[in-house]
Every structure is written in structure tokens, then in C-alpha cells.
Amino acid sequence: MIEHTYAVVGMACGHCAGFVTEEVERVAGVTAVAVDVDAGTVTVTSEKPLDDAAVHAAIEEAGYALNGGRS
């Protein structure tokens, strides 16, 4: 399993987490998504490397922006 954590700007509540989770789960290869609203992070799990651009686009589609890259 591969895990990457992305810093996301603008999430403030459980609804925000739901929107981000829904969009990121649509990215091919994603097996799990964990959103920590308080920390402003999204942890994405996959079995193979993911296309960072696809994850970034999914987060933007949910209405939020990445704060830097991933870790």
C-alpha cells in the first residue's frame, strides 16, 4: 500500500470532508481516503502510484486547493 498526505486549503467542516472524499475516491487506483479537517490534510491510499495531477484535480473539483505538494 502507498499512502500520500496532501495539505488542503479551505476545509472547515464535515461537509467539506465529504465533498473531498467523494471526489478523490473517483480517482483511478484510490483504495481509501482519510480527511482531517482540523489539520487540513487528506491522506490517500492506493496500491500503485497515483497521478498527482488527478488527485489535485479531484480536490479542486470539490472546491478546495492544495497547499503545496504531498508528503
Rank of each mutant, 00 (worst) to 15 (best):
G68R: 03
V20I: 14
T45S: 15
C16M: 10
A65S: 15
C13L: 07
E47R: 08
T43N: 11
I59F: 09
E3P: 04
G10N: 10
A62I: 05
M11N: 12
E47L: 07
A62C: 02
G14K: 02
V44W: 00
V30I: 03
E25A: 09
V27M: 01
H4F: 11
V35Q: 09
E47Y: 00
G14E: 10
C13P: 06
A65F: 08
V33R: 09
D52E: 14
T41P: 02
G10T: 06
E61P: 01
D36K: 05
R26P: 01
A17I: 06
H15P: 04
E3Y: 13
T45H: 12
P49S: 08
E60Y: 00
V9D: 15
T43W: 11
A32W: 02
T5G: 09
I2S: 10
R70Y: 14
Y64D: 06
E61K: 15
V33M: 05
Y6N: 05
A7D: 12
A57I: 01
S71E: 15
C13V: 08
Y6K: 04
D38R: 13
G68M: 00
P49A: 10
R70I: 02
G18D: 06
E23F: 05
K48W: 08
L50T: 05
G10P: 03
A65I: 01
A58D: 06
V37C: 06
E25L: 14
Y64Q: 07
A54W: 04
A53N: 05
A7Q: 14
E60W: 01
